[in-house]
Nucleic acid binder design. Structure first.
Lengths: 220, 220
DNA sequence: CGGTCATTTGAACTGTATCAAAGTCGGTGG
DNA sequence: CCACCGACTTTGATACAGTTCAAATGACCG
């Protein structure tokens, strides 16, 4: 399907709290090994043993689930500062792959569990992540294509701490599989938003919000 | 919108573990007050303080979120034995209402927190519930109307410990708002499933699976 | 029985998918 | 340095699943 890639480089690292989001004094500092995963490289697969937890340093990661006929639903995107791979059971409920070349700190689950304070924070992060999928379900169940795209872009800008301009870390296909749309609908919708002067595109990855207020109105 | 109703009756009670699901030695015994909520009655609203946790004794409950124009997404249905209203933050992220007259045990959050073992179990239940919304997102993002209905019915039968016949505790509109469809599509799809001899309906609430295997194939 | 509310059915419409082709961009090798 | 390649994206034309609007039917309850 797509070019196969594999992990590179491994150095010991202490990954500090990065994101400066609103209430993130809840940030997790993972101690572990930094690994570089190349674009499209699998980090773990659905059903694997969940022995490690991860934190994105740079690049981005997607997690996803598949139906047996190949339809894919991307469940989350992870951006720099995000923790992922925290499972409550023993097995992975979703697979994870690097979107672009990504540097990730990998930490043994058992090692984290030893530190009560740390594992509390990790739990809270994981819960917050799960709560995002409730929001996601609302979007998938009840919003139009335009509303999905707009709320997605606004959310992404927010998580990237971007004010009104940022780089999309994923392809149109990834966006489509996250929003329950097709790649063509994503493309057309973004073209239309640009025609309506609600967003500006420079190349297909760089997005600017010339009038954020108007965008926000579109999906409240 | 709909007939207003209100809570009735309050007696002290000890709500024992009910569901005999596969791995539910994880069941929670809430000690609190039994309340009866009438059909369509609000149990709590989005944004309320989350001071109580609940367990369904009989009847059923829905939780939901609204868009500002009134579109509704039902996030979960709670059946006898289910715990609900466990929040990780201080505020309700969704509203909850009784589907039918429902008996519910209400317990102060602070009271439960005192019992470590108990609150652990409560947490795990809440996490499992949140994980369900990841499954839900897959369904909403990537399955057809027929697949949604079939997987919904199978899941419901399972949770009701029904073998091949059970009573739907909710209206077509509720099913529609859970599955991201319209009431007409739900109705037509069920009629079609019946015509295909994949389900049998007696009245609009009683469902039977004459060939469960065939149903399961429809949504793997 | 009659009234109310939920459900089903029908007909027409529409948003999004599908299928197909053309355009863009970045990288690579000549 | 430039031309070509492959992957991704955009655009176009058409199809269709699911929605919308409207009306008929059915179920429940006093």
């Amino acid at each position: 399907m797509q070019a196969q890639a594999y992990a590179l480089k491994s150095t010991a690292i202490r990954a500090p709290a990065i994101r400066n989001g609103v209430e993130d004094r809840d940030d997790v500092t993972l101690i572990g090994v930094a690994k570089t995963y190349h674009r499209e490289c699998e980090i773990f697969g659905e059903g694997d043993a969940a022995d490690f937890v991860y934190k994105v340093i740079s690049g981005a990661v997607r997690s996803f689930r598949l139906l047996s006929d190949g339809r894919r639903q991307i469940t989350h995107f992870y951006l720099p500062g995000d923790v992922f791979g925290v499972e409550f059971g023993k097995e992975r409920r979703a697979g994870a792959e690097a979107l672009s070349d990504a540097v990730v700190v990998v930490s043994r689950r058992s090692a984290v569990a030893a530190d009560f304070d740390q594992s509390m924070r990790l739990w809270r992060q994981a819960v917050r992540e799960l709560q995002r999928s409730e929001d996601h379900a609302l979007t998938l169940g009840r919003r139009s294509a335009t509303e999905r795209i707009v709320s997605f872009l606004l959310d992404l800008a927010d998580r990237l701490d971007a004010d009104d301009e940022f780089e999309l870390p994923m392809t149109r296909q990834d966006i489509a599989d996250y929003l329950g749309l097709t790649i063509e609908t994503v493309s057309r919708t973004m073209t239309q938003l640009q025609a309506d002067r609600l967003i500006q595109l420079q190349g297909c990855r760089r997005v600017r919000f010339p009038r954020r207020g108007a965008l926000e109105e579109l999906c409240e």
